[in-house]
């Protein structure tokens, strides 16, 4: 009996926090900026720290993952004498799965955690209260630009990741392993479709960006404002963010590519 009651209480608690996070998301998007020019400045600043600063890790990981895929794919495909198909393998793997998913995971680690820590620290040093006291809504001023920047950056980063991955794979397979480049491109172009592959991958990245950035800013905003609390919130951002990405990826893949 007691266990059921506890379970029920835990469920209600969980539902409540989901509701709070939902209201938080809606409020931070809906509140329109009072001064458009200043909001744009804030957004640009966040695009810089969320997007531009994540560029290096995304480009480097993308290139290496493309190169590894090409090596692995080549050694297996060569057994069937169809090593030209390495381009097809590379493009489909990157566009459909690795591009959006790996970029989102990197993004959760690189940008998500720093968003949480930054907002958490602003809370701990009473900067958020200070905004409130000045009659400035911290959701509008602090959260909204960060959220929007995250949602813009992740899909762009994911495209850049896929493109560098394909270029990395091209270098390995064509320039080093001697795959014929005409066959490499034509097999790739034959099997890659703009809507099912590129667009679907992009849509995935958009979903991931909303989930990860939402989790990151919410964890920062709701964290216990102590050094321990910020640490925990940062960890939660990475853990919950990664889990959300993988779970969402399953659902989206089933909806997009599963033939039911």
């Amino acid at each position: 009996m007691k266990m059921i009651a506890e379970l029920g209480a835990a469920l209600l608690n969980w539902l409540e926090s989901v509701g709070r996070a939902g209201i938080f998301l809606v409020q931070s998007i809906v509140r329109l900026p009072v001064r458009p020019k200043e909001s744009l400045n804030l957004l640009v600043k966040q695009l810089y720290s969320v997007g531009v600063l994540s560029l290096v890790i995304v480009v480097v990981s993308g290139a290496f993952i493309g190169m590894v895929l090409a090596l692995q794919g080549y050694s297996i495909l060569a057994k069937f004498g169809s090593e030209e198909a390495v381009g097809q393998l590379l493009a489909l793997a990157l566009l459909r799965e690795l591009g959006p998913v790996v970029t989102a995971l990197l993004f959760a680690g690189r940008a998500g955690s720093s968003l949480t820590a930054e907002i958490g620290l602003m809370k701990a040093t009473e900067q958020l209260s200070s905004f409130e006291m000045m009659g400035v809504d911290p959701l509008r001023r602090v959260i909204a630009p960060r959220f929007i920047a995250g949602v813009i950056c992740l899909p762009l980063l994911s495209l850049i990741f896929s493109a560098t991955g394909i270029i990395g794979g091209l270098v390995v397979s064509v320039n080093w392993l001697g795959v014929h480049d005409g066959a490499f491109w034509s097999l790739m172009q034959q099997s890659v479709y703009f809507d099912t592959d590129i667009l679907n991958g992009f849509i995935k990245a958009v979903f991931f960006s909303v989930a990860v950035t939402w989790i990151a800013v919410y964890q920062g905003y709701e964290c216990v404002p102590t050094s321990e609390g910020i640490g925990k919130a940062t960890t939660r951002t990475v853990v919950l963010g990664s889990l959300a990405i993988l779970a969402l990826d399953f659902v989206l893949t089933a909806a997009m590519f599963g033939d039911f």
Partner: peptide
Amino acid sequence: SKRIELAVGAFIVVGIMAFVYLAVQVSG
């Protein structure tokens, strides 16, 4: 802030270029 704006602009252009590259070169 000018430098930041420049970097952000470059980032967005690179992102769009990646999109066009994927659309034209990869999916044909």
